[in-house]
């Protein structure tokens, strides 16, 4: 149903507003202390314990290649959960500020103007107007599959560099 409404969580990253469907969102919490995960891409900020689970966290600024947040700025983690390959993947996303919860139908979401965009079109579901500001509705599943590809790339590049290093030493 195109005119069926679903709920979106709007948040701020740097100077832009983004929205995600709340269907897969578990909870939003204040920033936590994270334990880094070795041999993962830079945007993979680490893991923390949430309700007995070890949850990995992505910095969306880093993932979207937006400049880093100023030190000391209060930030938040949106915890979401998806089914990937018949397994549950819980993942946290670091954002700057939680703004609003909005009800939208498919009709409200417009196509994304490709020109002049600095975001990977894959990650974007569309755009809506929110209080005269252009808000980008994200497709989190797509972001996650790109994250997986990044992790694999990083893991294999580590192997290659190690092998390279060994050869050099010999």
């Amino acid at each position: 149903m195109k005119n069926e409404k679903s709920t979106y969580l709007f948040f701020r990253l740097h100077d832009e507003i983004f929205g995600v469907n709340v269907n897969n969102i578990v909870e939003s919490i204040e920033m936590q202390e994270l334990t880094p995960i070795p041999h993962t891409p830079e945007f993979m900020k680490g893991v923390f314990v949430f309700r007995g689970h070890v949850v990995p966290v992505i910095d969306l600024r880093k993932k979207f290649m937006i400049e880093e947040a100023p030190p000391g700025q209060k930030r938040y983690i949106i915890i979401s959960s998806f089914e990937i390959k018949e397994e549950q993947q819980t993942m946290g996303f670091i954002v700057d500020k939680l703004i609003d919860v909005v009800s939208l139908s498919e009709y409200d979401i417009n196509d994304f103007p490709e020109i002049g965009s600095r975001y990977n079109i894959e990650f974007v579901k569309g755009v809506v107007k929110y209080k005269d500001e252009l808000t980008i509705i994200l497709n989190i599943e797509k972001i996650l599959s790109s994250v997986e590809a990044d992790i694999i790339k990083k893991a294999t590049s580590n192997v290659n560099s190690e092998a390279h290093k060994q050869e050099e030493n010999e």
């Binding site: 893991v47 397994e87 997986e148 893991a155």
Partner: peptide, 27 residues
């Protein structure tokens, strides 16, 4: 053993993570 989730399956230098007595994470 706690798994990080399916998208970390290729990070196979770890069996998984575990939660230590003080609540912090160890791989």
């Amino acid at each position: 053993i706690k798994n990080l989730g399916p998208i970390f399956n290729n990070l196979d230098i770890f069996v998984g993570a575990s939660i230590l007595g003080n609540g912090s994470v160890a791989y």
